[in-house]
């Protein structure tokens, strides 16, 4: 409840400032490293590349992607005869933005009514919180939002979503703990159609991507939704925790294999976590990143913008 009061006052701080302050730590680490290199006397040589490599690795970009980016950068430098370090940095940034924005695709509200969003991810990635924040945001924008408490496994997960629904002043479809999540999803989509909702957000229990039985359960949830409303879910979003490392790649691949994902949400970017793994995911899976969580307050969930993201990461 405390959160609510705080959010009222600070709600209008602006996306830019909020993202930047959220990413402050990130910036000071990743960009700080690069800025130091840029301001220093380093020439575009092995030392600069080594420093860049380290900075990218610490940002969880991963070995493979880091090598790829640096190889690319080396070519760029040679082709364009870049001599100044800030030029090198500009090229690096440009390439990163390119990779991150190539799959850009907005969530379409108008094409589908109700818009059905299925939220999936591993335990503790922040699915329920993300749903709560999105619900609040869209409710404020005047949309008719319905929630579905599809996490029938974890103790009190249903209560958790209901608290968010109460806060936002919207309804939450739920059954008792231990119920079949497909049944909850079925009820929710049916109710959303009947009540002429704009959007229905379906929560699911967290599961590790390697747990085949639970992945099968998710497939079933998705199938059942499609039976109630052909074409739904319109967005199956994977929620990724920015504090995690290269395992996010395995998560994305296996969830995508099972569910044919439509995009990502990355949470917990307000810590020192950098989420560099998104570079790999954007490049490999060609899926858009829709939202990022940069703080704990309801409106700290923001639309992902690659330019702002990279800008906040590497500002000169």
């Amino acid at each position: 409840m405390e959160e609510m009061e705080q959010t009222g006052e600070e709600a209008k701080t602006g996306f830019f400032a909020r993202l930047k302050s959220g990413l402050q730590k990130t910036r000071s680490s990743l960009a700080g490293g690069i800025e130091n290199i840029v301001q220093g006397k380093a020439k575009v040589g092995p030392e600069l590349l080594e420093e860049l490599e380290e900075t990218l690795l610490i940002a969880d970009v991963g070995m493979e992607t880091t090598e790829f980016i640096l190889e690319d950068l080396k070519k760029d430098v040679a082709q364009n005869r870049l001599r100044e370090n800030d030029e090198v940095l500009k090229h690096l940034k440009g390439r990163m933005i390119e990779v991150l924005s190539q799959n850009k695709k907005p969530i379409e509200f108008n094409a589908n009514k109700p818009l059905v969003i299925l939220m999936v991810g591993i335990n503790g990635s922040g699915k329920t919180t993300t749903i709560g924040k999105l619900a609040q945001k869209w409710k404020q924008e005047g949309k008719k939002v319905l929630l579905a408490a599809g996490d029938t496994f974890r103790a009190a997960a249903i209560d958790q979503l209901q608290v968010w629904a109460e806060r936002a002043g919207i309804n939450c479809i739920s059954q008792k703990s231990g119920a079949d999540p497909s049944a909850v999803a079925y009820d929710a989509v049916q109710a959303a159609v009947a009540r002429n909702m704009d959007v229905v957000l379906i929560d699911t229990a967290g599961r590790l991507q390697t747990n085949q039985n639970l992945m099968e359960e998710l497939k079933k949830v998705k199938r059942v939704i499609g039976k109630v409303l052909p074409g739904a879910p319109h967005e199956t979003l994977l929620v990724l925790d920015a504090t995690l490392g290269q395992n996010s790649i395995s998560q994305a691949k296996l969830f995508h294999e099972a569910l044919d994902l439509d995009g990502f949400v990355m949470t917990k970017l307000d810590g020192t976590a950098k989420g560099g793994v998104l570079l790999n995911l954007s490049g490999e899976l060609k899926l858009p990143v829709h939202f990022i969580g940069v703080g704990e307050k309801a409106d700290d969930l923001q639309a992902f913008d690659s330019e702002t993201f990279v800008d906040a990461l590497i500002s000169t």
Binding site: D60, G124, T243, L244, G245, Q246, S248, T272, A273, K274
Partner: peptide
């Protein structure tokens, strides 16, 4: 979380 990244 055992899957934590570089920040662990």
């Amino acid at each position: 979380d055992a899957m934590m990244g570089q920040q662990s």
